[in-house]
Amino acid sequence: MIVADRKSLEEILAMVQEKHKILIVGCRGCVTVCNVGGEKEVEILEASINLARKTSDQPIEIETVTIERQCDNEYVAQLKEGINTYDAVVSLACGVGPQFLSEAYPDQLFFPGVNTTFFGGAVSHGVWEERCQGCGTCIIHHFDGLCPVARCAKSLLHGPCGGSSDGLCEVSKETLCIWDMIVKKKMEQGRLNDLLTVMEAKDWRSARDGGPRRSIREELIP
């Protein structure tokens, strides 16, 4: 799923500083699962902004709504009524959400309430980790299902680099060296030969480097 972190209250307060009436829109998709932009978090943000504005003697009117998915125009359309009655709208969806909203309602101002971080999952309660970079050409079958493009700090296709130490990456003691994992798995399972080749340079056209991407499925186009 797409993982995000809530922006700091200070940053959100600065965005809505001059506003008197705002709407906070949550999303029931990924950001609900990673506990950052669902119904509960919308309520928390509402209370926090209200309190901060009251304390600074600049009360604000806040309404809230959480829709099924902000990345789907069918659900975005549900906001149509009254959307232009607010001074601004804060979206707690991933970066896709406020953009779908901005495109659907060009007369309104939309602010992001979260920082979208990565594609990943929860490895333990409260801890999410990156697993995929969306490079557009998956090659993890070469690496026993582990992705060095997303998980090696240098995206090496022939690791581990000289900074790998005790199974950890040189950039942080909190980060596992994915190449250590790949190599150990190959060695344990007697498939080291898989790694003794020089891979072709990756074709980054399918990644963001090729420009903004589009996915077309002819069979679904009416």
Binding site: K154, S155, L156, L157, H158, G159, V198, M199, E200, A201, K202, W204
Partner: peptide, 11 residues
């Protein structure tokens, strides 16, 4: 990191 050191040697 468009390419890595191994691919640089090859290049």
């Amino acid at each position: 990191h468009d390419i890595d050191s191994m691919q640089l040697i090859r290049l």
